[in-house]
Structures are given as structure tokens and as C-alpha cells.
Design a protein around this nucleic acid. Structure first.
Lengths: 119, 119
DNA sequence: ATTCTAAATAGCTAATTAACCATATACCGT
DNA sequence: ACGGTATATGGTTAATTAGCTATTTAGAAT
């Protein structure tokens, strides 16, 4: 309700909805294994599209497409260098989110099995 | 790589993939505004399907379906009480995730505008 | 200019899914 | 049993999208 209070009356539901949509958008960005793999690959160093294609097990076109999605949402930045394009992490916060999901899954695994997640 | 080291050789890529898929599954659960709205509603108290239908702006069938998805993934628990079914949060960790996304969006908003998110 | 390489895009298909309507199931009160 | 209410499910539609192949764009080197 804190948000709603900052807005004009009767906009409560709509505001919340738009906030929920923004949240959902971020979660959606991270809801594909290939995109998570890209982020994981770029965590320690920026890489060219070609390097990513070599590492991930999918086509150059697909890597390019997923990179674009992450770039369009400002999760990644790009730097052209001659023939190639290097992508880098612009929003390290995504790793905090991944870590938190890992913790959630691990808490759960403790109750059942024992596999530990760690991205 | 820490995971891979705990497994037998040559299972590196597959393991990582399966971990990424589990992560992605959690993110996907939270990537729909309606499901986020349900979680938000249930945060402070468990509610019946009917109550949720009255609050959220969507059909009973849809609410029921989304509840089932969250229930199947053990995010929610259900308790039958006579005619009605009450759902409750089983995995409060989701709110930590939402809060972290809010912080991420707020950090971003500081650089541009000023709207503050708070779920 | 032409060729080679890197990356992006267009067009396509198959799969997923949110939301709807209609119906079924299940519990309650009478 | 029967009607009423609460929830779940079946079936459909429309929209989204990951991944593919083929093509295009653009820079580098000869």
C-alpha cells in the first residue's frame, strides 16, 4: 500500500498491477536456462558472441537473440571491438537473485535429499 | 564449478544445465503478475479461493489454476475447511526474492526517475 | 573490390500457457 | 434426495517464445 499512498486516489489496483508486472518482467528474464547460462558465463569476464556460442550448446542465432533480450533490458552491455561484439554484465544484482534461489532450493533439499545448488 | 566437482567426471555440462533448469523453474513461477498478486495477498494471512477471487480481478477458474501451479511447486499449502479451501504460504523465501527485485528496480530508478517499488 | 569471418536478423515451427467459458465435483444445509 | 455454494477441471483460443535454418549486415584482411 505504500506505493498507492504516493499516488492519486483510485489508482491503487492499477499501480499495484504495474508494479507486479515490472517484477514479473525481471523474473521472466531469468526464467530461461539459456539466459541463465549466458549470465553465468559472463559473470567473471565479458565475452564475445563467438566465445559464448562455443561454450553454450546452442546456435549462434539463438545466443544472439538471448543476448539481445538481456541487452534490451539493460542486464547486459555490449562493446564492439573490430569484427566482434563483447557483452558484459551491467546488472550484477541478478547474481544475488540466483544465489537467493539457490539458497531456497538448498533449504528445500535439506528436508528431502542432499544435492546442493550453487551458481 | 563447485557442483561439478562433487559429481563424476564428464557430467559437468549436464549437471549445470539441470541446475540452471531448476533455477529457471523458480523464476518462471514468479514471472506472472497474477501469481505474484496471489502471493502478495496470502503474505499476511491464508485465504480461501473465494476471497482471492473477490480481490484479484480475474475468474475463479483462473485463480484456481494459478493456485494449483503454486501448490504443485510447494510454494503454497492448502487446507480444506468444509466447503472452502484455504491456501497459505509454504515458502516465504519468495518474498525475499521479490524484495530483492524491488531493490534492483529501485537502484535502477534512482539513476533515471524516482518511483519506488515496494511489494 | 572481393573474400572471409562475426554477429544480427528474418521467417518458421513447435511448445507453452494465461485466461476464458462451460461443466464437473464435492461439501453443506434443508 | 435435493438445491446451493465453493472449488476444480476440461476444452478452447490467442499470444508468446525458444530454437532452428537461411540470409543479411558489417568489419578485416588480402
Amino acid at each position: 500500500m505504500k506505493n498507492a499512498q504516493r499516488t492519486k486516489k483510485n489508482a491503487t489496483v492499477e499501480l499495484q498491477r504495474s508494479v507486479l508486472e515490472r517484477l514479473a518482467t525481471v523474473f521472466k528474464l531469468l526464467s530461461e536456462p539459456t539466459r541463465l547460462a549466458i549470465l553465468h558465463e559472463l559473470r567473471n569476464r565479458s565475452q564475445s558472441v563467438g566465445e559464448l556460442v562455443a561454450t553454450l550448446g546452442t546456435s549462434q542465432a539463438n545466443v544472439s537473440k538471448q543476448l539481445r533480450i538481456l541487452f534490451d533490458h539493460s542486464i547486459l552491455g555490449r562493446k564492439q571491438s573490430g569484427n566482434q561484439v563483447f557483452y558484459e554484465i551491467l546488472e550484477p544484482g541478478v547474481f544475488g537473485l540466483c544465489a537467493e534461489v539457490c539458497r531456497l532450493l538448498n533449504r528445500r533439499a535439506e528436508n528431502n535429499g542432499h544435492i546442493q545448488y550453487d551458481i
